[in-house]
C-alpha cells in the first residue's frame, strides 16, 4: 500500500542547535490488506514517519511510494486514505454532525451515502446522542472516537492511525480494537502506531519497530515471539525430585525448578532442550502430567531488543 525507501529526516530547531536525526534511512513496506502495528517509545520517530507518508512534512532524502491501486495523483490517493492524528483537537464550536459532514464532503462522499454512514458508525461508537453537541463539550475519549469515525467515514482502502487508543478507558479501547479488526476483515489495510505493546500484539499480524529513528524489526508478530530465545517449556511430572534430578543431572537442561510437594515437580527448560529432556524422562518411565509452551510477550521482547 505504501513503501518507504531510505527515508531520512533531520530536525534543527535553530542555527546553533545540534541537528536531531528523527529518521535514519528508514525503509519499510505496508502490504495491501495487512494490519501493521508501528511500535516504538515516545520520540522514536513514529509520528514523523506518518507525517512524511501523509505529506505534512517532507523527508530530507528517500522516498515514499503509494501502491498504484490507490491511484496516480495525490487527490486520487488521498481519497482512499483515512487518517487519525495523535491527540486530535477539533473545531470546538462545531457540533459532531457538522464536523463529520464537513470531512465527508471534503472526501467527496455523496450526501445520500454520508448520512446513513454517520448514523451507523455513531451508533457503533456510542456517540449518536452527542452529535448535536459542540465538540468542545466532548470528553477526550469521545473526541478520539469521533476522530476515528471521521477517518473511516469515506470507506478508505488504507487507514493510518496515530496512537488511536490513547486517552480511552478499557471499554473504549476494547471497542475500538474490535472495530479495527472488523474493518480489517473487510479487506482494508491498517497501519497504526502505538507505544502500548499488548495492543499491537492483540490485533496486528505484522509489527514495525522503531527506536531512536532506526528500524529495529519489521516482520510478523508471531515470528518475533516464536524466534525469541526466551520461549520456555514448562513440564509437570509426577515423581520424587531426587529421582528426576538424577535423570537430568549433568545435561544442564533445567532452567528453573518448582517443587510442588513430594509427588509433583514443575521443570522449565528452553525450547531447544525440550526434545532431549522429554526423551530422558520417557526413557526413565517418568509420568509426564502436562507440557506448556510459555512464550514471552511482545512487550518482553520489545524491552529486550530496546536494551541491547
Amino acid at each position: 500500500m505504501v513503501k518507504l525507501e531510505q527515508v531520512e529526516k533531520i530536525f534543527k530547531s535553530d542555527l546553533l542547535a545540534q541537528p536531531f536525526v528523527a529518521l535514519d534511512k528508514v525503509s519499510f513496506n505496508i502490504p495491501d490488506g495487512s494490519l501493521v502495528g508501528f511500535l516504538g517509545a515516545n520520540g522514536a520517530g513514529k509520528t514523523t514517519s506518518l507525517k512524511i507518508i501523509m505529506d505534512f512534512i517532507r523527508p530530507d532524502s528517500g522516498q515514499v511510494t503509494f501502491s498504484p491501486s490507490l491511484g496516480n495523483s495525490r487527490i486520487e490517493i488521498f481519497k482512499k486514505i483515512g487518517f487519525l492524528p495523535e491527540r486530535p483537537y477539533f473545531y470546538p464550536n462545531l457540533n459532531g454532525e457538522e464536523f463529520l459532514n464537513m470531512l465527508g464532503t471534503l472526501s467527496e462522499t455523496p450526501k445520500a451515502v454520508l448520512r446513513p454512514r454517520i448514523k451507523h458508525w455513531s451508533q457503533v461508537f456510542s456517540i449518536e446522542h452527542a452529535l448535536k453537541r459542540p465538540l468542545k463539550t466532548y470528553s477526550k475519549g469521545m473526541l478520539q472516537r469521533i476522530g476515528f469515525l471521521a477517518a473511516i467515514l469515506h470507506d478508505p482502502e488504507f487507514i493510518i492511525l496515530d496512537e488511536p487508543l490513547s486517552g480511552l478507558d478499557p471499554v473504549g479501547r476494547k471497542g475500538l480494537k474490535d472495530v479495527i479488526s472488523e474493518v480489517h476483515k473487510k479487506g482494508k489495510t491498517i497501519f497504526f502506531s502505538s507505544h502500548v505493546v499488548p495492543d499491537i500484539e492483540e490485533i496486528c499480524d505484522r509489527v514495525i519497530f522503531l527506536e531512536k529513528g532506526k528500524l529495529i524489526y519489521d516482520g510478523s508478530v508471531q515470528t518475533l515471539i516464536h524466534s525469541s530465545p526466551n520461549t520456555e517449556i514448562a513440564i509437570k511430572v509426577k515423581g520424587n525430585r531426587e529421582v528426576v534430578e538424577n535423570i537430568l543431572k549433568g545435561e544442564n537442561l533445567v532452567k528453573s525448578w518448582d517443587d510442588m510437594g513430594s509427588d509433583y515437580q514443575y521443570i522449565k527448560v528452553s525450547a531447544e532442550s525440550k526434545q532431549k529432556t522429554l526423551s530422558l524422562l520417557v526413557n526413565h518411565s517418568i509420568d509426564i502430567v502436562s507440557l506448556d509452551v510459555e512464550k514471552p510477550t511482545l512487550e518482553e521482547i520489545f524491552y529486550k531488543i530496546k536494551n541491547k
Binding site: 501523509m54 505529506d55 505534512f56 495525490r74 487527490i75 486520487e76 488521498f78 481519497k79 486514505i81 483515512g82 487518517f83 492524528p85 495523535e86 491527540r87 486530535p88 483537537y89 477539533f90 473545531y91 470531512l103 471534503l106 472526501s107 467527496e108 476522530g147 471521521a150 469515506h154
Partner: peptide
C-alpha cells in the same frame, strides 16, 4: 493538528 484532518483528504 486540526489541519491534519483536512489535508489528509483529497484537498
Amino acid at each position: 493538528r486540526t489541519i491534519y484532518m483536512i489535508i489528509s483528504r483529497p484537498v
